[in-house]
Structures are given as C-alpha cells and as structure tokens.
Nucleic acid binder design. Structure first.
Length: 234
DNA sequence: AGCACA
C-alpha cells in the first residue's frame, strides 16, 4: 500500500529501523546516509516504547526529502529494509526557523516546573552554544588537506582499498558500511581496535574505490571530522 | 505497527 496520502514534507519519517542500534549511532548513520540528498537540519530519534524503530530526518528542502523517499525505499540498513515516507507534520526545528513554533503543552504542573528549571539551566550553558544543531554540517565537501602537509608522504597509487582518516572516535564499522555500501563494488570495512579514527574500506576494484573516494571525500560524520580518504598502501 | 521534537 502506497503511503501516498501524506503530502510532501521537508521532513521524512523512517520506520522499520533496527531497534538494537544505539540512538546516537542511529542518528549519525541516518545523517550519513541521507545527507547525499541535501542539507539535513535535524535527525530525531527516540527509543521510547512507542517510538523505537522510527526516526525523522529533516531536510532544508522538500525536493531533497522527495528524492530520499523515492530512492531510499527498502534500503538495507543495519540488516533491515527501511521504510521511508513523508512526515505527517512539520518538525519543530523548521517551525522554529519560520517563526511558527509554539511550544506544545500537555504537561502537568510538576513536569512544567522541572521543565522550566531545565530551561534556565540550559540558558546558562548556552554561552558555549555554537549551535547545538551540530548537524549544520553541510555533508560532503570538496577535498581538503590535513595532517602531513609539510612532510609530503608519497601517496599510494590508486587501488581497490581506501584508507580513511580523521574519523570521530565513536565511528563504528557499521556506520562506515552504511556510507560506503551505497557505492558499487563495496566489499567490506575494516577497523582496528587499537587505532581509533582510521579505517580501511575495500572495493572490488580501483575504479569503484575511486568513485566512492570522490563521492565521500571530506564527508563529515561530525562537523569537526571531515574524512580524509586516500588509497591504502599495499 | 508505531508520526516526535528530553
């Protein structure tokens, strides 16, 4: 049955997600996966009984959401085919942006009190708020240089294995798989316990590895971590 | 199956 009765929305609703995946990893992986369609403003996932296995991805453009809905239908994500629809309502983060946000209030007094307290605490901390929406990420960016600018190490010749650097330490191989398996010829991700921040990704051949490198060069899993992709040294 | 914004 097509979910065709939901009008286009810049937010998408994703369900049939693997419930074993931790919330933060899930959000990051969704971010990684969907940022190929456009700028992502927010990813929302809750693990409450009612909301586990579901998530919302908020794009800055409806067209991005439309492409995602069409193209990511049944995409195998953590071993489960994801179901993607438009969200039924506007996300808070876009309501806030267009000024139509009204805080919902279905709380009893006690909860409100706690809420208020929390907010004032937040206000104090928001000195360092360089945007809690750290997802103002921008997704893939053009190549950049990092690390050994001076001491010019010889680059490995193109081959079927990619060497990834500058990954956030929370990166898991599943997260990288999610990203790289979108490209034809993907074989596997290898990470080394003792060496966080790097990974190897193998493709069937060097043409395919090069396509993935091109597409994901500089990709940011977090804003601070544009990934540096090179060919592995054999 | 399940449409929220901790």
């Amino acid at each position: 049955m097509l979910s065709g009765d939901i009008p286009p929305n810049q937010s998408i609703y994703v369900k049939n997600l693997n419930e074993k995946v931790k919330k933060e990893e899930l959000k990051r992986s969704l971010y990684c996966l969907f940022s190929q369609y456009g700028r992502i403003l927010d990813v929302v996932a809750l693990k409450t009984p009612k909301l586990r296995g579901q998530a919302w991805v908020v794009f800055s453009e409806v067209t991005a959401a439309s492409n995602a809905v069409r193209q990511m239908q049944n995409f195998p994500f953590y071993d489960k085919p994801m179901r993607v629809q438009y969200a039924k309502t506007k996300s808070d983060c876009v309501a806030k942006a267009d000024g139509t946000f009204v805080p919902r209030e279905k709380k009893k007094k006690q909860e409100e009190k706690a809420e208020r307290k929390r907010r004032t605490e937040e206000a104090q901390q928001s000195a360092n708020a360089n945007g809690r929406n750290a997802e103002t990420n921008g997704g893939p960016t053009p190549p950049f240089r990092q690390g050994n600018q001076g001491a010019r190490e010889a680059e490995a010749a193109p081959n079927n294995i990619l060497f990834i650097q500058n990954l956030p330490h929370q990166t898991t191989s599943m997260m990288l798989q999610v990203l790289f398996q979108q490209y034809p010829g993907f074989r596997e991700v290898r990470m080394i316990e003792a060496k966080p921040g790097i990974a190897f990704v193998e493709f069937e051949d060097d043409v395919q590895s090069s396509m993935a490198m091109e597409a994901l060069q500089g990709f940011k899993i977090t804003p601070q971590n544009p990934m540096a992709i090179a060919y592995a040294k054999k």
